[in-house]
Amino acid sequence: MSDITIYHNPACGTSRNVLALIRNSGEDPVVIEYLKTPPDRATLVGLILAMGTPVRELLRQKGTPYDELGLGEPQWTDAQLMDFMLQHPILINRPIVVTPLGTRLCRPSEAVLDILPQPQQAAFCKEDGEAVIDANGHRIDKR
C-alpha cells in the first residue's frame, strides 16, 4: 500500500495532472474521490493542520454554493466553515496530497513535486500540453 494519498476529483484537470505526476514518480497512490467519500471532521481538521493553512484558504468558490451560502462574509468561524465543507464537500478545494514529506493543496499541479519522495521518471506534459518535466525527469524552469 502506498504512503501517498490524494484527495481527488476526476472531473478536475488540476487533480488529474497531480495524480499523473504522482504516478510519473513511480508511486501508485491511495486515491480518495472525496466527493464520493468525504472526509470526516477529524480527517478534515488533520489535513488543515498538516497543511498549516487557514481554513478559508481551503474553500473552493468556483462551481460551489460558496456565494449562495455567503461564505465570503467574515462572521463564519473556522468550525462553521468546516461544517459547510462537511455538508458540501465540493467546497473543499482540491487536490490535497499527503506524503511522508508533507501535506499540500496542490494548486498549481506542480506543487506536488515539492512533496514527492521519489523523482519523476519520465517527461511529463499537463493535459493542456504544457511541459512540466523534461526527458531526464527534471522540472522545467519556466522563468
Rank of each mutant, 00 (worst) to 15 (best):
M1R: 10
T5H: 07
Y7I: 08
N9D: 13
P10D: 08
P10N: 10
A11Y: 03
G13C: 12
S15M: 07
S15V: 00
R16P: 09
N17C: 01
V18H: 05
L19Q: 09
L19V: 02
L19K: 08
L19R: 06
L21W: 00
I22K: 01
I22Q: 04
R23K: 13
S25Q: 11
S25L: 08
S25F: 07
G26V: 07
G26N: 01
E27D: 15
D28A: 12
D28I: 02
D28T: 14
P29H: 05
V30T: 07
V30F: 06
I32R: 11
E33N: 13
E33W: 05
Y34W: 11
L35V: 04
T37C: 05
R41T: 05
A42M: 05
L44T: 03
L44P: 08
L47A: 13
L49H: 13
L49N: 15
A50T: 10
A50W: 10
A50I: 00
M51I: 10
P54H: 13
P54E: 12
P54A: 14
P54T: 15
V55N: 15
L59S: 06
L59M: 09
R60M: 08
R60P: 00
Q61V: 01
K62A: 11
K62V: 14
T64S: 12
T64R: 04
T64K: 09
D67K: 03
E68I: 13
L69A: 03
L69R: 02
L71E: 01
G72L: 05
E73Y: 07
E73G: 15
E73I: 10
W76H: 08
W76G: 08
Q80R: 15
L81A: 15
L81R: 11
M82W: 14
D83P: 02
D83S: 13
D83V: 06
F84Y: 03
Q87A: 15
H88Q: 14
H88W: 11
P89S: 11
I90L: 02
I92V: 03
N93D: 15
N93W: 05
N93I: 08
P95Q: 05
P95K: 06
P95Y: 02
P95S: 09
I96C: 07
V98P: 00
T99M: 00
L101N: 02
G102E: 06
T103M: 02
R104I: 09
L105N: 12
L105S: 11
C106H: 00
R107M: 04
R107V: 07
P108Q: 04
E110Q: 13
V112S: 06
V112K: 02
L113F: 02
D114R: 05
I115Y: 00
L116Y: 03
P117F: 04
Q118H: 09
Q120Y: 01
Q120S: 04
A122K: 04
F124H: 05
C125T: 09
C125G: 06
C125M: 14
E127Y: 04
E127L: 09
D128I: 02
G129M: 00
E130V: 14
A131H: 03
V132C: 01
V132F: 03
V132M: 15
I133H: 01
D134N: 14
D134G: 06
A135D: 12
A135Q: 11
A135P: 01
N136H: 09
G137E: 10
K142F: 12
R143M: 08
